[in-house]
């Protein structure tokens, strides 16, 4: 009930971008997400927090239908983006994923050059008219991901040859270059040093001006720094969802409080 009130307050600030209603996810017999309702506002950063294995990544993958690629995964319930059900047969998952970008938990650069990695999305979607255009897009994306200075002299080197943290930023650049309306980031800073983390957080702030961003993180301080709304997941349930400030200063559920104060997880 209280959650509803908070969500309503958020909707007053911005329109709802993503609305999930009664979402269940099963991996074979494992019930990974249990009847989750959530409304994610436009031009907002939403943080998903919760102990390992509680279903944060799973829920994130529902939003761009990446769970379709796992044969044993089954998604039930309704997810609306801009009021349109993404499971509607008229919705093309390919188009959906172009609109809803994703940075995966594990960096997965393609075995191609750094340049080709970033140019992958723009090329597929025909976002550039010529090479010069593409160069601009690539440079811009790499700058946003705080990687440009490190790689500008070796754009032709393989992306897989970068360090773990650099690969993570390369994947962020790759997702940004496609120009998504929603960006789903699964622990994008898990392998980054404080400086790079700061740069990525700046990027998130910047993206928020036009897009909605959902970020999964294990760092409480990061969640409180970058997000306006926070959702706490526990064993597949959405336990609490509300303004980040409220969640961190005044959690209503005992489990949330325990997690935030470091008693579990």
């Amino acid at each position: 009930m209280n959650d509803m009130r908070l969500t309503e307050r958020a909707t007053q600030m911005h329109d709802t971008k993503i609305a999930a209603r009664g979402v269940d996810v099963f991996y074979g017999d494992t019930h990974a997400i249990k009847s989750v309702d959530v409304e994610i506002a436009d031009k907002t950063v939403t943080a998903f927090i919760g102990p390992s294995g509680c279903g944060k990544s799973t829920f994130l993958r529902c939003i761009n239908r990446m769970n379709d690629t796992i044969p044993i995964a089954r998604v039930e319930g309704e997810i609306l983006i801009d009021g349109e059900d993404i499971h509607d047969p008229r919705v093309d998952p390919v188009q959906l994923r172009a609109k809803v970008g994703m940075v995966f938990q594990k960096p997965n650069p393609f075995p191609k050059s750094i340049y080709d990695n970033v140019a992958y999305g723009p090329r597929i979607h025909g976002l550039s008219r010529n090479k010069a255009d593409l160069d601009v897009i690539v440079e811009d994306a790499l700058r946003k991901a705080a990687l440009w200075d490190e790689v500008k002299d070796r754009l032709a080197a393989p992306g897989t040859g970068l360090s773990g943290g650099q690969q993570q930023r390369l994947c962020i650049a790759r997702a940004v270059a496609t120009g998504p309306e929603i960006l789903l980031m699964d622990e994008p800073c898990s392998a980054l040093d404080p400086i790079a983390t700061d740069q990525v957080e700046n990027l998130i702030h910047e993206l928020r001006r036009n897009f909605s961003v959902v970020i999964v993180t294990h760092s409480m301080s990061q969640a409180s720094r970058v997000s306006q709304r926070t959702a706490y997941f526990h064993l597949g349930e959405l336990v609490e969802f509300g303004d980040t400030g409220d969640i961190f200063t005044n959690p209503r559920d005992q489990r949330t409080e325990n997690y935030i104060t470091g008693r579990i997880g």
């Binding site: 994923r97 995966f104 994947c171």
Partner: peptide, 15 residues
Amino acid sequence: VPQAMRDGSLGLGST
């Protein structure tokens, strides 16, 4: 070829 590679490409909206 790791599944993560395919996921990366599908996640960028390619068929």
